[in-house]
Simulated assay, not measured.
Amino acid sequence: MADAVRAAAAGDRDAWDALVAGFGRLVFAIATAHRLSAADAAEVSQTTWLRLVENLDRISHPERLGGWLATTARRESLRLLRLHGREVLTEDESRLEPDDGGRVPTPRTPEAVMLDLDRDHRLWRAFAGLSERCQILLQLVVVVAPPYAEIAEVLGIPVGSIGPTRARCLDRLRRLLAADGMTSATGAY
């Protein structure tokens, strides 16, 4: 794939088409995993490919293009979700009524909020300590959840090795969390 990236950066249309064919479903799957509408997922996909065009000559590790595209698609999905904010478009006004019988939810304490933020920060720090391959695999398996055949194609590994590789990546994540003082015994994960 690295050769296709370099060729596409040099203007080779066939190489560009190969990149889109190879990673198009991944990009769209990440967008739809964020529960975007089909139109919004298409917009995220189009913007992701535009970002690649804008940065194609600056990709320092073309062999990691799948991870770059996955990260870009995730960021674009989150950006679009932020833009939409809390909009609720519906013709069914009953959907705007609270489902909790009118009860006001109990606010969370500042301590609970801080504990959750600390846990999340430590989790993402441990996740960043994983190899890029593990990060991509876990994002695909847990967040996007396409069929294993698609994951195998994107990562270039046999379908049968996805489960064991995922288990090794999760074990590594558990060890990183344990080294940071987060253990299942403490209820931290």
Rank of each mutant, 00 (worst) to 15 (best):
V143S: 05
V142A: 11
A7H: 02
A2E: 15
A15N: 09
E43I: 07
D118K: 09
F127R: 06
R119M: 07
E111M: 08
C134W: 09
L115D: 15
T109I: 06
L19H: 05
Q135K: 07
L83E: 15
E63R: 12
A149Y: 12
R103S: 10
P158Y: 11
R51N: 11
P146C: 14
A179K: 06
R58D: 14
D92N: 10
A33V: 04
G163Y: 10
D99K: 00
S77R: 03
V27F: 03
E87Y: 09
R51K: 05
A128E: 15
T186P: 00
G129S: 12
H121Q: 11
T90E: 10
G129W: 03
G181E: 13
R133C: 04
R79I: 08
T165Y: 03
A31F: 00
G66F: 03
E153R: 14
L176S: 04
R74L: 09
D17T: 13
A7K: 12
D171L: 06
I162E: 11
D120R: 06
G129Y: 07
A70H: 08
A38S: 14
R74E: 13
A41Q: 08
L170S: 07
E150K: 08
V154S: 03
P105Q: 10
A126D: 10
H61D: 15
D171G: 06
R174G: 02
R13L: 10
D100I: 04
P105A: 12
P147V: 15
S94E: 15
A8I: 13
I30W: 00
A31P: 00
R51P: 00
L83Y: 06
D100Y: 04
T109F: 03
V27D: 02
F23D: 00
L65W: 05
G163C: 04
V113D: 15
E54H: 12
W124S: 12
D17Y: 01
S184V: 14
H34I: 01
G102N: 04
L56I: 14
R168E: 00
S45K: 05
E93C: 02
L26C: 10
R166P: 00
R95Q: 12
P105K: 09
S37K: 07
E87N: 12
R133Y: 05
W68N: 01
A7E: 12
E63K: 13
A73S: 08
L117C: 14
L80E: 07
T47L: 01
D116K: 09
T32P: 00
A178W: 01
E93Y: 00
Y189W: 14
G11L: 02
L138N: 03
W49R: 01
G102T: 09
G24F: 05
D100P: 00
C134G: 13
V27P: 01
G66R: 01
D3S: 14
R25D: 15
D17K: 09
I136S: 01
L65K: 01
L138K: 04
A15E: 09
A9T: 13
P146F: 13
A33K: 01
A41G: 08
E54V: 09
P147I: 15
R174S: 05
A18Y: 01
A126Q: 03
R172I: 10
M114W: 11
T109Y: 08
R51F: 02
E91W: 03
R175Y: 00
L96Y: 10
L80V: 08
F23K: 00
L52Y: 05
G85W: 11
L138I: 10
R64W: 08
L50C: 06
H84N: 14
V88W: 05
A38V: 12
E91Y: 03
D3R: 14
G22K: 06
S45G: 11
D171Q: 11
